[in-house]
């Protein structure tokens, strides 16, 4: 029992800072999902009849399915490197709250892969024919949705850590879990684009976000713990 210990908050901050530094040194990992998101949303108008009214109808589905797939793409990287080089083991025996350290990791992951999508999302919505006044609603929906996607996805990423072909298994595990996010996110976007009040769907999205913020880290920590056995 050492006399002085680093507090959990400073340890979690250290994890966050180090992961950001690593992302600066190796930008490929987090640029990949962003590039995927931009490309796919650009492909949509090419494949569909470029009639603005029809594009506008498709926009919510296109935006949200693409967001889902790009965040799945990013999830694979969440714990993989740390598991490979033994860092996760060191987290577990650091005497710090394992959950808090994993929350810090997930937060960094969202900052690097979720937030850029939220920032690019409005542009993609414009290219799909959404009117400019719909953008605030779309932005809030994407923000709330991407947070939930990262948090819930962390459970799947933890569970598939030990699996050999983790990628496919990860999508099978996570996609059913995030269906509510897709349903309410697409609905909110649809309402915003039609110029209606999107608040009800946004509230539900926020509720899912709050639920995943409180419960998902515990489940993710338990999942990672099991995969380290």
């Amino acid at each position: 029992m050492s006399a002085s210990r680093a507090s959990t908050a400073s340890a979690a901050l250290a994890v966050l800072r180090r992961d950001l530094l690593l992302a600066v040194r190796r930008p490929g990992e987090w640029l990949q999902p962003l590039a995927f998101f931009v490309l796919v949303t650009v492909l949509f108008p090419l494949a569909v009849d470029p009639e603005p009214s029809r594009l506008r109808q498709l926009a919510p589905a296109a935006l949200w399915v693409t967001l889902l797939l790009s965040s799945l793409l990013a999830l694979e990287f969440l714990f993989r490197e740390d598991r490979r080089d033994g860092t996760l083991e060191q987290y577990l025996v650091s005497g710090q709250s394992f959950t808090a350290l994993l929350v810090a990791k997930t937060a960094t992951h969202w900052l690097l892969t979720g937030l850029p999508l939220v920032l690019v999302g409005p542009l993609a919505a414009l290219s799909l024919g959404a009117p400019p006044q719909a953008l605030p609603g779309v932005c809030v929906a994407l923000l709330l949705g991407s947070v939930s996607l990262s948090l819930i996805g962390a459970i799947g990423a933890g569970l598939t850590l030990g699996a050999r072909s983790g990628g496919a298994l990860l999508s099978l595990l996570v996609l059913p879990l995030v269906m509510p996010v897709l349903v309410f996110g697409a609905r909110a976007t649809q309402l915003a684009i039609a110029g209606d009040e999107a608040a009800s769907a946004l509230y539900l999205l926020a509720a899912i976000g709050a639920l995943s913020l409180t419960l998902a880290p515990l489940a993710a920590a338990a999942a990672v713990r099991i995969s380290l056995e």
Binding site: M1, S2, S4, R5, A6, S7, S10, A11, L13, A14, V15, R18, L21, L22, R25, R26, R84, D85, G86, T87, E89, Q90, Y91, V93, S94, G95, Q96
Partner: peptide, 30 residues
């Protein structure tokens, strides 16, 4: 009270030795 060193060194390949040590200390030492 315990420190574990396994087969994997838990060092980040993209960081320098000093940066790795600094992070390791931030986890445990005030």
């Amino acid at each position: 009270d315990m420190a574990y060193l396994g087969h994997d060194t838990a060092l980040k390949a993209d960081l320098t030795a000093l940066e790795n040590l600094r992070f390791a200390c931030a986890l445990r030492v005030p």
